[in-house]
Write a protein that binds this DNA or RNA. Structure first.
Lengths: 122, 122
DNA sequence: GGTGCTGTTTGATGGTTGTCAAACAGTTTC
DNA sequence: GAAACTGTTTGACAACCATCAAACAGCACC
C-alpha cells in the first residue's frame, strides 16, 4: 500500500497524528508522588526538556539526545513517563508520537509544569 | 545548670532558635533532580505538608504523624530532605528545629514550591 | 516477500533504597 | 550521677531500579 496519510518526512502539524493511544492514567488518577518519582531521574528530566521543546515522532536514543543509552533503556524511561501521566504516546506506523500532557497536568497541578520547565538546568 | 535560653515548652517565636546548623547545600548547589528525588516518596511528601504548615521542634515520629515508622527511618528521611536542600535543621538541646527553606527554594526554582504545596493530596 | 528499521518485552545484574533493630551520643531532669 | 528522652549511626535485609543484551513483533521500503 502507498502512504495515504503522510510519510515520515511530513512536517509536524497541529492536528491528530492518528494511531492508537498507548495506555495512560486518567487526569484525575495522576498522582503527584508518581510524577515526582518519574522526574527524579536525570534521564527523564532530560526528556522533559526535550518534550517541552516540542513533540517528537521518534523514540530512537539518537533522536532524543540519549545516544549513550540502549534503546530498551529508553523504552523503559518512556513507559515510566507515560504511566505516571507526564507524556502521551500514539503509535504511528513504526514510530511513536510522544507529547507532553500539558493541559492535563496544568488542570491537575496548576503551575507545576511551568515551574518545573523553568527550573530545568539545560 | 538551669535553663537559660528557654525551656522546651516555650512558644515558637519567629527569631533565631539558636543551636548549630546541620550541613546543607548552598542555594546555588541545590539540584532540581535531587529535590524531585527527595519528594518522590510518600513519607517525604507527607513531611513537606507538615513543614509547609509550620516549623517543627521535634523529629519524633509521633510528633510528625509518622507513628507507624521507626525513629531511625524518620531520621533517614529527614537527612535526605536536608541534604537535597528542602529543609534546614538546627540542633536545639536534644531536639531538632526543622523548617522549610522557602526563600532559598523560591530563589532557586521560582514558583516550584508553591505549586508543589498546592498539589499535595492532603 | 525479504530486508531493514523502530520499538517492546524478558531476563540478568549490579546498585540504590526504605525499613527495622540495636548500639550509641547528648541533653534534660530528678 | 542516674534515669529518661531525642535523635544519629551502623548493619542487615528485602524490594526496587537503571541498565544492557537478546529475542521478538510490526511496519516500511525496495
Amino acid at each position: 500500500m502507498e502512504t495515504e496519510k503522510g510519510s515520515r518526512n511530513d512536517p509536524l502539524v497541529d492536528g491528530d497524528p492518528g494511531g492508537e493511544q498507548l495506555p495512560q492514567p486518567e487526569v484525575a488518577d495522576i498522582e503527584l508522588v508518581k510524577v515526582l518519582q518519574a522526574l527524579g531521574d536525570p534521564v527523564r528530566l532530560w526528556l522533559l526538556k526535550v518534550y517541552a521543546d516540542g513533540d517528537q515522532y521518534s523514540c530512537r536514543p539518537g533522536a532524543l539526545g540519549l545516544d549513550h543509552l540502549h534503546k530498551s533503556t529508553v523504552s523503559h524511561h518512556m513507559r515510566i513517563l507515560r504511566e505516571s501521566g507526564v507524556t502521551s504516546t500514539r503509535v504511528v506506523g513504526r514510530n511513536r508520537y510522544v507529547r507532553l500532557r500539558r493541559e492535563d497536568l496544568d488542570a491537575r497541578f496548576p503551575g507545576l509544569l511551568d515551574a518545573l520547565i523553568g527550573a530545568l538546568p539545560y
